Computed example of a mutant assay.
Amino acid sequence: MDTQQLALVFPGQGSQKVGMLAELGESFSIIKDTFTEASDALGYDMWDLIQHGEQAQLNLTETTQPVLLTSSVAVWRLWSAQGGLLPSLLAGHSLGEFSALVCAGSLGFADAVRLVRARGQFMQTAVPLGEGAMAAVLGLDDTKIVEICAEAAAGNGVVEAVNFNSPGQVVIAGQVAAVDKAIELLKAAGAKRAMPLPVSAPFHTSLMRPAGEKLAQALADISVQKPNIPVVHNVHGKTESDPEVIKALLVEQIYSAVKWVDCVETMVAAGITTTIECGPGKVLSGLNKRINKSLNCFNIESPESFAETLASTK
């Protein structure tokens, strides 16, 4: 196939699980070597944690973010080393955008690992534990969900649509009372499902602005380069080449909605026919297929899926 038709995509929080990439790590030394590099940057054995640690530890935002970024970069390095086709576009969901920027040569790997650990800490502490909530909404029009969030927010606090994941699948987040009210109103409006998610903070809401301010300070000391491969950004679904604008988008992303539908539609409009999800799980592959049924969607998380993807994209 042609480079112009391929995009690589990188998952966000929720894809982590104990034992992930185990077989890939045993089969290809580049996987474990990448984890060693990240472990040196953070001061603990990350590979040991994901293979033998507790799921609860993995689910802590400040752990999840560096673990997933490292997993994605490890798979990207394997893909590149084994002669995988160079993609013409990259994109990542939320945290995955940082993975995409590392793979594009825009962010240094060690810098990014430390940065996303800090990002996780900033996001977790922006809203006191127990005060924030998120919920998935299925089977309702995006515009209707936005309207209902505005209605539920009146007198109840903040609730906003924060992830536009695929047609008919939107995540909302905010303060507990407002999210609860929104769930009630969304069900009454005909949503197929409106269910709370097991997440400890209201990510991508305006409540995350304090985290954005801290991230901006952390980014001030980090070198960002023009990407070698264009990255489609969550905030507006477009690519950007100016390093200072990229920094600003990473800050804005923390308190803005993830417009994943827009990101995928941008890729398709640019001629992308195939996406490869680098890292554990198949969340993005499922979303991408729902956004555009004509897309060929692969994922790499095991030796088998790697071999299949490599063979299918020659």
Rank of each mutant, 00 (worst) to 15 (best):
L49N: 08
M208P: 01
E131T: 10
E37L: 15
S71R: 02
A100E: 04
Q82R: 14
P202E: 01
C149F: 08
R77H: 06
N234E: 03
G174R: 01
L115I: 09
Q225I: 01
L60A: 15
W76C: 04
T274Q: 12
G53L: 11
W79E: 05
P66L: 04
L287M: 14
N234F: 02
V113L: 11
V146M: 07
A177D: 11
N299H: 14
E308R: 10
T63M: 14
C149V: 06
G12P: 05
V9L: 13
E213K: 13
S94W: 00
V116D: 10
S302H: 11
E147R: 09
Q225M: 04
D33A: 14
N156V: 00
T309S: 15
L85F: 06
N228T: 03
I276S: 09
V127I: 08
I183Q: 10
A56S: 15
K259I: 00
A154R: 15
V162R: 07
P230N: 02
S302L: 11
D262C: 00
K247W: 01
V9K: 05
L310E: 07
G174H: 00
A150P: 06
E265I: 01
N228P: 02
K192L: 08
N163D: 05
L215A: 05
K247H: 03
W76T: 06
V67E: 03
V75Q: 06
D141L: 07
L129R: 13
G237C: 05
Q169D: 07
G237V: 04
L310P: 09
T309R: 09
F10M: 07
V251Q: 01
E304A: 13
T273Y: 03
V73M: 03
N292G: 03
K214F: 00
A56P: 14
N165I: 08
Q225G: 01
V179C: 02
I222L: 12
